[in-house]
Design a protein around this nucleic acid. Structure first.
Length: 256
DNA sequence: ATGGCCTGTGGGACAGGA
């Protein structure tokens, strides 16, 4: 079972690339972020045409998450992250596919920091910690996949200095991510590849792609029952190099 | 060494991304 996460940066602009990637790599499940569209204009027809059922949680202009499943319809189990009824951002969607609970996460960036946007990021991560604990207690296979907007370690960025003031590398951001790992969640890429560059994002600016000036911010965290089934993990780096690409590359795992 | 972009909204810049 191949499960991927892909921040598409606008699903309508990205649709040809998305359909091409689905056809080439055939993930069983694809968690998408940054749809940047409302629910009524989500391209459900084109995605069904590619052989995928879908659930989605859109928003005008920004954010937006979806879960696609090949040959079946994901069974939605949560829409929105619990813990703040006033939070109107579409950043969390959860569904069960083939017995595996899968979340599509678009975590707040938090820039500029310090400030209210950073406070929102940290509060959101605290809510995620609580909800993740509930899922963990169920002792079922769970995959928390998405754009976490956290660079976990110095080796996950091309330049520690360039990112020093950024919300993605702040000690509070890293601590909140590390808290999930300490609670028993497995960072799938690092479980399979303890060392080395596994960047998932390269900025459109400053020739970042050409210089390989990227960082690793798209993650798949696994509950123990899912981690026991992990056989492979990787990044579809070539997807980032195509015309009209998203600034993120798809990141994936294979569970047996 | 520095700076370089893209998407959506809406019909011109600007917000937001990271």
């Amino acid at each position: 079972m191949k499960i991927a996460t892909y921040n598409v940066n606008g699903i309508r602009s990205r649709l040809p690339r998305l359909l091409e990637w689905l056809d080439e790599t055939k993930p069983d499940v694809a968690c998408l972020q940054e749809l940047k569209c409302t629910d009524d204009i989500f391209p459900v027809g084109e995605i069904a045409g590619a052989g995928y059922g879908a659930v989605w949680h859109g928003q005008k202009g920004f954010n937006g998450v979806a879960i696609l499943a090949r040959g079946c319809n994901p069974e939605e189990t949560a829409r929105g992250l619990p813990g703040d009824p006033d939070d109107a951002h579409s950043r969390y969607l959860e569904a069960v596919v083939d017995g595996v609970t899968i979340a599509s996460i678009y975590l707040p960036i938090g820039n500029p920091q310090p400030g209210p946007k950073f406070d929102y990021k940290i509060a959101w991560m605290e809510r995620l910690r609580h909800h993740a604990a509930d899922l963990y207690a169920g002792e079922r296979p769970v995959v928390l996949a998405g754009d976490y907007n956290v660079i976990p370690q110095d080796e996950d960025t091309f330049s520690v200095r360039a990112m020093a003031g950024d919300a993605l590398t702040q000690p509070e951001s890293r601590a909140a991510f590390r808290t999930l790992l300490a609670a028993g969640w497995t960072d799938a890429i690092r479980a399979r590849h303890p060392a080395g560059r596994f960047y998932t994002f390269w900025d459109y600016q400053a020739g970042a792609w050409a210089r390989d000036a990227g960082f690793r911010i798209d993650h798949l965290l696994l509950s123990p029952a899912a981690a026991d089934r992990l056989v492979d993990a990787g990044v579809d780096k070539a997807t980032r190099g195509k015309e009209k690409a998203s600034d993120h590359a798809p990141t994936w795992i294979v569970l047996r």
